[in-house]
Design a protein around this nucleic acid. Structure first.
Lengths: 337, 337
DNA sequence: GATGAATTTGGGAGCGCTCCCAAACTTTCT
DNA sequence: AGAAAGTTTGGGAGCGCTCCCAAATTCATC
């Protein structure tokens, strides 16, 4: 398998390098006749243009990066991230983009990774999982000249492109549902501190409570970190205060909460109703099936890629924001009192 | 932030392009004095060599791909893959490699992806999640000229580099443990058909049974597909045949099996002992904690990267194989009769 | 101090594309 | 028929590096 070049194909067809390039890049300024002959030669030889040469000449690599800072080491414990990655990967497939993954396990990794991310000629842009307070990598990337789209609203969104789901409305729809069903003493298990999703979901929780004329009782708010075990611990803390229902900021934590409820000899939803967030596959399979706030994760990834493409093509002024809607999925875990 | 080139740095320091290149690439043929001056200029300007130009000239991209064919769409349902990806990403961080992720959701994706994977000048090599029978993408990649390392033993391993864990020994150690504790009628929930891991674990299961002088009863073998719900279904099927213990080919399925056992009003391990495979985080947090076969996933990823580096550097003849050992982690789910 | 060897340095050639401009060829219109 | 306009094609000039060879410099040796 010898390495063919544009020139080889050109010689073979009897045209010039430029013409072959035009055909390959779909330029309209080629006669039908020539286009067909070139295409046939490309087919039979299996010719592939050299990516490095193309990048060098065109200043475009058709490659984007997905950066997960150390702060989201939850990549492994929360299925949310694999799903998100999947959505982004599919988005790349549909836009003929190659996806590079930058996973940082610790600060040292970040130091190693940063130059590779910002190396000129490597990436056309990056998607950064954000929404963490004071993250070193995020800040560095935000002020770099590389086209960047944050995934999750940053705490200081000025001039930054980002995509997020409407966490406030998502959370309030869940809690409102609980309140409408007649539950009182609705507890909340938060996500990890320092995450904008956590802050927003808490805000939505409080807003819905107020709207329903129910008091916000701080003893009914327990802090988790999106992991199963944190949901379990938080619920144990909550149980002595007799909640009738609990809204967990993630399905994974809701699963942990249910475990704690069952262990205490209580039943879901008869004794404590539970609502989660994310609508991961587990929500449908667990018993009882979990009522939860669905995030359109796959769509989210696709839209993130599109947004980044737009920023790459048109510059990032003005900063663009996309906020996706959520949907409350009703299942069995909150009964219907 | 203007785009600097080697030449700019060279002019600034008063040396030639070549000398700057030597310094950046750590060539020993540079005087200490010059090296320091160049390094300082690189530091203060924040100069980064252009990746595309470097790739084009050196015919190396320092980038590898991780390919997950559609057959492993389990990427989302089984936490094993995110962990593996993490291990590989860390391996890349440590080898100054950039990782590209190719996720195929369907055959169409694969058709789109393949040219991008094999585009010359793009990737130095690929890691392919394999071990699936008759996978189109895997076969194409195996016979391409791109340096390739399969993750998971392929069914036809002739001439193919691969890395795997010793699934036969891992499975037999689990079943042997159960047998030693005095359990009889040990059932097995297999992984998805057509996966070499499934075949090997089943083989290990049978071998351990024979070693213990216990019969292999086909009614005690149920087929799963590595997902939680498949473990649940398989266990429901198994329960009427009164197994005293069950060995599930993954933790995720073991969790499903435990759910089925509990639903049937039985207790783990008193009525049915359970052993899993993988040692995912959930194994430690579930109640009762799951005895399982630990796969060194992080190490696995790192070794896979190293193997690929070796293949890239030295060619793939002869084909290299790495088989990693597993470790049986004893917890509460199989009691101690 | 001259000679040769070892080390350091500079610059040309090239990697395989894209992009632009001008040349060649067609078509249309007067 | 000839000019004007439009379309298609070819080739030069890069993109920013690496690699090699030769030139320049340094060092050791007699």
């Amino acid at each position: 398998m010898t390495e063919l070049t544009l020139e080889d194909i050109a010689r073979q067809v009897g045209v010039s390098r430029s013409t072959v390039s035009r055909v390959i890049n779909g330029s309209p300024h080629v006669s039908e006749d020539v286009r067909e002959r070139v295409l046939k030669a490309v087919q039979t030889t299996g010719f592939q243009p050299n990516a490095a040469a193309r990048s060098l000449a065109s200043q475009r690599s058709y490659m984007i990066g997905l950066v997960l800072p150390q702060s989201v080491s939850a990549f492994f414990t929360d299925p949310f991230f694999p799903h998100l990655t999947q959505g982004i990967a599919y988005g790349c497939n549909n836009n003929d983009l190659t996806l590079s993954l930058f996973l940082a396990g610790n600060h040292e990794d970040e130091e190693i990774i940063l130059p590779r991310i910002s190396r000129r000629g490597q990436l056309d842009g990056v998607l950064v999982q954000s929404g963490q307070l004071g993250d070193w990598l995020i800040e560095r990337l935000a002020k770099s000249s590389l086209p960047t789209v944050m995934i999750g609203r940053p705490f200081d969104p000025a001039g930054i492109n980002y995509i997020d789901v409407d966490n406030v409305r998502g959370a309030s729809s869940a809690v409102r549902h609980l309140a409408r069903l007649g539950y009182r003493r609705i507890a909340h298990i938060t996500g990890s501190a320092g995450s904008s999703a956590t802050v927003d979901r808490l805000e939505g929780y409080k807003a819905a409570l107020q709207e329903a004329g129910q008091p916000v009782d701080l003893r009914l708010i327990a802090e988790g970190n999106f992991s199963e075990s944190s949901g379990y611990m938080a619920m144990k803390q909550l149980l002595p205060h007799n909640p009738q229902a609990v809204f967990a900021a993630s399905d994974t934590m809701a699963v942990g909460a249910m475990r704690a409820i069952h262990e205490a000899g209580l039943r879901v939803p008869e004794d404590v109703a539970v609502v989660g967030y994310d609508d991961l596959p587990v929500a449908a399979t667990i018993t009882p099936a979990l009522t939860t706030v669905r995030q359109p994760i796959l769509k989210f990834g696709a839209r993130a890629v599109e947004l980044l493409m737009d920023v790459i093509a048109n510059g990032s002024a003005p900063a663009r924001h996309i906020i996706l809607d959520t949907e409350l999925i009703l299942r069995d875990s909150c009964g219907r009192k």
